[in-house]
Design a protein around this nucleic acid. Sequence first.
DNA 1: CGGACAAGCTGA
DNA 2: CAGCTTGTCCGG
Length: 592
Amino acid sequence: MGSALAGGRDEERPRAVAGEAPPVVRVLPDARTLDKCFDYLLPAELSGRVGVGTLVRVELHGRRVRGWVVAVGVTPPDGVRLRHVTAVVGVGPPADVVDLAAWAARRWAGPRAAFLRVASPPVVVSALPAEVPPHPRTGAPGELLADIVRARRAVVRLPPAADALAVVAAMASRGPALVVTASVVGAADLARRLRAAGVPVALLPHEWARAAAGGATVVGARAAAWAPAPGLAGVVVVDAHDEALQEERCPTWDAWVVAAERAARAGAPCALVSPCPTPEHLAWGRLVTVSRTAERAGWPPVVVVDRRRDDPRTGLYSTRLVGLLRGDRPVACILNRRGRARLLACGTCAELTRCERCGGAVGLVEAGAVVCRQCGLARPVVCQGCGGQRLKTLRVGISRAREELAALAGTDVGEVSAATTEVPDSRVLVGTEALLHRLPPRWVGGAVAFLDFDQELLAPRFRAGEQALALLVRAARAVGPRTGGGQVMVQTRIPGHEVLAAAVHADPGRYIVAEARRREQLRLPPAVALALVSGDAAAAWSVALGGPVEVLGPDGGRFLLRAPDHTSLADALARAPRPAGRLRIEVDPARI
DNA sequence: CGGACAAGCTGA
DNA sequence: CAGCTTGTCCGG
């Protein structure tokens, strides 16, 4: 049994004063919707192993439940007969992370337990190693690190081909750093290379205990924002723009926001690294860039194909795309439409083919049957208007595109969707966005072509532009830097769009500055704070909020709340008493 | 959350 | 009115 179980710091230990009443601890049970603490007596034989954050077992209403100690040495309310803490389960999140969970519970209007669960070790940790060597502090020189430390909150814009390792290693040279990446694979890769550079690393979630023991730079995906990091000297979020940093279930916390708050609380500098920082990032911190030359060199050429004057009969395939397909380099064609056809019309009466049950557009998944994309109802290929059996494809899906591309390229074309297990070996691939995530290393020097980029640029979401830019970044990474011979091709009817200009000129600032202005005018984040409320109690609860919160909607049973900032939004959400009935609160909704 | 208990619905 | 469902309350 190690001695460091209680987390080490004096104020976390229970006050054991001789002659006074036995110590009482406050426990938050690990129950999904119960956001209430209960007090328990701490038996003397457990007192040395219990501090703020410790996972304990307690009896609640005749049941034995797990819970976290959230305060020690508390005075219980009068007139309650206290039970004893039954047992110590293991080491839990350190006291600073327990406080952070309380902050996040307000910020995202969720139960504290949801955050403490992510902050807890994946398996029971009974004890931590008592002695660990200290983290080296070499203090790497360099202008970039100096800029980050000076800014305290730095938004570091590096081009797609640049390696964030330089920023991470520089930060870790100041002492134990916390590094959050957008993917598990990215975390493992970064951890391996940091170790190779001589940095002691704890890779989350496996090495939770090693992180808690201290003396290591902590690396992990989203959940690592909640990892223990004693003596935290700096925080880096790699690919801070990535949507994977936000939890998709409620509470919808965002790892970069959590990581930034942690850095602020620890008095440590924080760097958000991204090729395409969002308006939120720029509202939070100061932009740090590399030279124009270096940024340009880190983007591949982005070729914009203006399709406004093209013959509509050429469909998704411009002359320049066909040229690319007939070359000898790898080409990945991206089309965010699954199935064979996404929109059909009758060849006889020209009526749009719609679902007879819900009226939604039907698509063709396999030859022989059409399926409604809204309700899933399938029926044979027959027009419901005139009974015609010949349907025209108005919007091609990837299965159909694969056949057409194969004919144009004169070669085999592989198809990749989210369901594909192995990327085919073909030189030409077609797939949805999922393909972009899975392009093999041989794509460096090759090409990525977006067949219909307008679908991304014009998507009815306020983040459509930044998401489109993020797609271009992903494509740019796959094909490599300017000197490698790769290229990104974009077919569009909006060739002047700011997002495209940003990528063509390797200057994301062109887009972000304009976008931030637009968000201000439209009163969208980061100029305001938003929350989406649904569930049968949503209507009654939303209107009762009052204060600075504006209620919009309902739209599809959901209410949109708008407040001037997150502080006033969180205050209002915490103040309003929760009515009975279901209530789902999504702060910072991902799709509006 | 999950048990306790109370207030409503059905069947004879 | 027993026997069961559905809802609200509460736990240290």
